[in-house]
Design a protein around this nucleic acid. Structure first.
Length: 639
DNA sequence: CTTAGGAAACTTTTT
DNA sequence: GTTTCCTAAG
């Protein structure tokens, strides 16, 4: 039976039906279980159709996991378990035309890189230093997340932010011309659509009998509005969250949404405080960390109660430098893997991605299989981005970001001057703009060659991306170009392109399109890239949200790293660092190994580091047995 | 318009 | 230690 393997509180949450429900669920308390079982319960006991339940998760991986578990119980895979972004893209593919923004349903999605490039370009036109691009983008992003008219909202901001109002207008204009949306637009446009068009709001409300939202503490204002719009005047909603796992306020998350939800919907509140994941010592550490919070949520602290018999272990090692730290981690992993567990039972959670470098080199030397999740992702490599840009432009000749990227790669004499002239002639698409521009002889030849190559693949890139890629590589003499440009590591880069060709080959053979391949990649999370293989996983704490391992290492526990330097002066930021450390600790099922270094390389220079305040906070939980042995080994052999 | 070389700036966290 | 920006010569 569906309810059989649930504890009384989980069961109560699953069975609750009369009114909106808010479940405050601590780390490892089985909230995914409650969500999946609730779906099964609604289907079996309340007669709902699985395809009429909308479940919003934080990452695609969580969505897939949840869908898989439900499928096991019901033998049918619910259609609407997805992230906010993936859901909104589906809505927009249907109805974006109604908005009259000038986009059509074949819109492309711009990642951070693309959108930053467009902003830099716009800033140049206003004679603003391109160093402000990040600030401008953040301002625009914030305005969209607050869900107000973007230009007006920015204009009302205090100086100097209000300077970006015109920039925002131009930026949106450029996106429109490219038939592109950035990540924020995906949510923003969907919300605008439902808010301003009753017929469309009714249509989407009518598709769902029940809505669930996971990780509610990390929703932002506009996502909250969106949920309300999808509900209309109904109360068939279930929200799950944990204010102490709020780690995305820098991205607009508003944990107060939880309180707002309780008020707006007069929701019934329930709590889950029994932790089924972690051993006792690990939980003691987590509780000690979070009990020192100074936030206004302090009175609502969930004290996690252990369910497990095992003691577990929490250890702390102080090292001389980053090198001996990595080495001592490797030694420990060696020991563990011989007796206790496999490599894939181990994760190293880091605060900042640059910390993976020293780990990587030592892991390599000692032949420990590892996977770095995130970091410089495959699809961020220059050569991969180049070839993707060629394919993008072939499929969608309005794509400005793609055009800018490769119009002069390999170089064909088209510099700033020529491109300014082409930009001035842009009407419908970039190929036409080139054709409409009169250029000097040398530039003309290069431009014509470019137009001809793109034209050659315009018809085929979408459905035969693999063939198009191979043809492009050939026509562009791209390998030769790489040999010239990258000299040292061109072989590795060729390898990357061959990997890309493998991926696209699969897409092509399975009858997929290039656009859907791109979209999938842009909307997938770091977590989706975790391979199912025997290896130690190295990833940021943020990317580890919602995951668990028997053994977890948290290195670089130093003031300025964890907590991060930029957070030290702001109380709110420090609180978030603390929660982040809490999230890190609660990923461990059995063993938690903490460490720090006295000296660490920063900008190529070794600087002294003070150990993190979190070590002091959990002092009494730390297991000191056997520490001397480890210290000694580090000092004797560690260089 | 390109290229090479050197200086400067820089790293939270990401759907 | 690495990427990006800038300048001056081809």
């Amino acid at each position: 039976m569906i309810l059989d393997d649930l504890n009384p509180r989980q069961r109560a949450a699953v069975e609750h039906f009369d009114c909106p429900l808010l479940l405050i669920a601590g780390a490892g308390s089985g909230k995914t279980k409650v969500l999946t079982h609730k779906i099964a319960y609604l289907v079996r006991e309340k007669g709902m159709h699985p395809h009429r339940i909308l479940a919003i998760t934080f990452t695609k991986k969580a969505a897939n996991e949840m869908a898989g578990r439900v499928e096991k119980m019901l033998r049918i895979k619910p259609r609407w378990i997805s992230t906010f972004h993936a859901f909104c893209v589906k809505v927009l593919r249907d109805d974006i035309a109604t908005l009259n923004t000038g986009h059509d349903k074949r819109f492309v999605i711009y990642d951070e890189d693309d959108s930053l490039k467009i902003i830099k370009d716009v800033l140049k036109r206003f004679y603003i230093d391109s160093k402000e691009a990040a600030a401008a983008r953040n301002t625009i992003s914030k305005a969209k997340q607050e869900y107000q008219d973007v230009v007006k909202c920015i204009a009302a901001m205090p100086f100097p932010l209000n300077n970006y109002a015109e920039v925002a207008r131009e930026y949106q204009n450029e996106l429109r011309k490219s038939n592109a949306l950035d990540y924020d637009d995906i949510i923003y446009f969907t919300t605008a659509l439902l808010l301003n068009h009753d017929d469309i709001a009714l249509k989407w409300q009518g598709r769902f009998d029940f809505i669930m939202v996971d990780e509610f503490q990390d929703t932002n204002r506009i996502q909250y509005s969106l949920i309300k719009l999808l509900l209309g005047d109904r109360g068939c909603v279930f929200a799950v969250g944990d204010p102490f796992q709020t780690i995305y306020t820098w991205r607009g998350a508003v944990p107060e949404n939880i309180i707002q939800f309780a008020e707006d919907f007069a929701a019934k509140e329930m709590k889950l405080e029994t932790n089924y994941r972690s051993a006792r010592k690990v939980l003691d550490a987590a509780n000690a960390v979070i009990s020192r919070t100074g936030s206004r949520w302090a009175s609502r602290v969930l004290k996690l109660h252990p369910d497990k018999e095992e003691e577990g272990t929490v250890k702390y090692t102080e090292n001389a430098d980053h090198f001996s730290e990595s080495l001592s981690i490797v030694r420990r992993i060696r020991d563990l893997s011989e007796t206790f567990c496999g490599y894939s039972d181990i994760a190293i959670l880091i605060r900042m991605s640059f910390l993976s470098r020293s780990l990587e080199s030592v892991f390599m030397q000692h032949n420990i299989p590892y996977q770095i999740v995130g970091g410089l992702a495959f699809y961020d490599r220059a050569e991969v981005k180049d070839m993707l840009a060629y394919l993008r432009l072939s499929v969608s000749p309005q794509d400005k970001a793609a055009f800018d990227r490769i119009v002069n790669i390999p170089s064909r004499g088209l510099g700033a001057k020529a491109l300014a002239a082409v930009s001035g002639n842009y009407k419908t698409d970039w190929m036409q703009a080139i054709k409409d521009t009169t250029l000097p002889a040398r530039q003309k030849a290069g431009a014509e060659h470019f137009v001809q190559i793109i034209g050659k693949y315009a018809g085929s890139a979408e459905h035969a991306p693999y063939s198009a890629l191979m043809g492009l590589l050939d026509d562009l003499d791209y390998i030769e170009h790489m040999k010239k440009t990258y000299k040292e590591d061109h072989e590795e880069r060729e390898q990357n392109l061959s990997e890309l060709s493998n991926v696209l080959k699969t897409v092509q053979l399975q009858g997929g399109t290039f656009s859907s391949f791109l979209e999938e990649n842009l909307l997938s999370s770091e977590q989706d890239k975790i391979a199912d293989e025997q290896s130690v996983k190295i990833l940021t704490v943020h990317a580890a949200k919602g995951l668990e391992w028997p053994v977890v290492f948290v290195p670089a526990l130093e003031e300025g790293i964890f907590p991060a330097a930029k957070s030290l002066e702001h109380m709110k930021a420090l609180e978030e660092e603390r929660r982040l450390f809490y999230v890190a600790c609660t990923r461990a099922k059995e063993s938690l190994f903490l460490s720090s270094a006295k000296y660490r390389m920063k900008f190529g220079q070794s600087s002294y580091m003070a150990r993190s305040r979190y070590i002091d906070d959990i002092e009494e939980v730390i297991d000191r047995r056997g520490e001397e042995r480890i210290e000694c080994r580090d000092n004797c052999e560690g260089r």
